[in-house]
Amino acid sequence: MGGKPCQLVLTGSAACFLDTAPLYVYSASKTGVMGLMRSLRTQLPKNSNTTINMVAPWMTKTPMLLPQFLRVWGELPANEPIGIARALLLPAVRTELNGKSFFVAGHDIVDLEEGLERTKPEWMGKELSDHVDEAQRRILP
């Protein structure tokens, strides 16, 4: 195991968490990125001294955007590429981070995984949440 610590930082999207019709294929592919991060986050640090995190940007102003989309978006918070770059570097600065999904909107960075885990008994129900936790404990090495 030992060795030099490594970090994987995957680029997901707000489309992992929010309805994004009509971007069906984009949303599905970015949700796959989130699933990959979640499936590896408990095992990579144990087996290879590697952490894994995901950055999930909200709307980002790039040359690919159509001008009419920016008009519709108006004054809502939007990212510039430099803000996404900062979010991508966050795990390099804070090497203890692992298994996080950093939602980036208007350059605010929020870890959604922490909130999901903390509130799981509320949205899943306490009994089912406890059963899921116990099942995870049993099946994960």
Rank of each mutant, 00 (worst) to 15 (best):
R118P: 08
Q136Y: 10
S129H: 15
A78T: 07
E113D: 11
K4W: 00
P63A: 04
K100N: 11
I84R: 03
L90R: 00
S29D: 07
P22G: 08
T62A: 05
V9A: 02
M124E: 13
L116N: 07
F69W: 12
T95C: 02
E80P: 11
V132W: 08
S29P: 02
K61V: 09
T51A: 15
V110I: 10
L90H: 02
M34Q: 04
M124H: 03
S29V: 08
R38A: 06
L97C: 07
Y24F: 08
R71Q: 13
D19R: 10
L44C: 11
S29T: 05
P77R: 14
M59W: 02
Q136D: 13
K100V: 00
N53W: 00
L90S: 09
W58F: 06
A14H: 04
P121I: 05
G2E: 04
V55E: 05
A135T: 07
K4P: 04
K30S: 07
T50V: 10
T60V: 15
L66N: 13
K61N: 05
G115E: 14
P45N: 08
N47D: 10
E134V: 14
E113L: 09
D133K: 01
A15L: 05
L18M: 09
M1Y: 02
M124F: 03
F102I: 01
A14Q: 07
R94F: 11
M37R: 00
Q43L: 01
I82L: 13
P45H: 08
I84C: 03
S27F: 03
G35I: 06
I84V: 15
V33S: 00
G74F: 08
G125A: 09
A28W: 06
P141H: 13
L97T: 03
W58A: 03
M64A: 12
Q7H: 13
F69P: 04
F103L: 06
N98D: 11
T50R: 01
L112A: 02
K30W: 09
H107L: 02
V33R: 02
I139S: 04
S101V: 07
I82E: 12
Q68R: 09
P91L: 03
W123C: 07
L90W: 04
P141Q: 13
G106I: 13
K61H: 12
P22S: 04
I52E: 01
A78P: 09
A21N: 13
A105C: 15
P77N: 14
L112D: 08
L70E: 10
I52P: 04
V132N: 03
G12I: 07
R138P: 07
F102N: 00
Q7M: 10
L112P: 01
A87T: 01
G12C: 04
L8E: 13
V132D: 09
P81S: 11
L40K: 08
T95M: 11
M34T: 06
V110Y: 09
T31W: 15
R137Q: 11
P67Y: 03
P5I: 05
G115F: 04
P81N: 13
I109D: 00
V132Y: 15
K4H: 02
K126G: 01
P121V: 06
K126L: 12
F17N: 07
Q136W: 14
D19Q: 15
N49L: 13
M64G: 04
E75V: 12
G115H: 15
K4V: 05
H131F: 06
G74D: 03
R94L: 09
G3M: 10
V110F: 07
I139A: 05
P45C: 12
P141F: 08
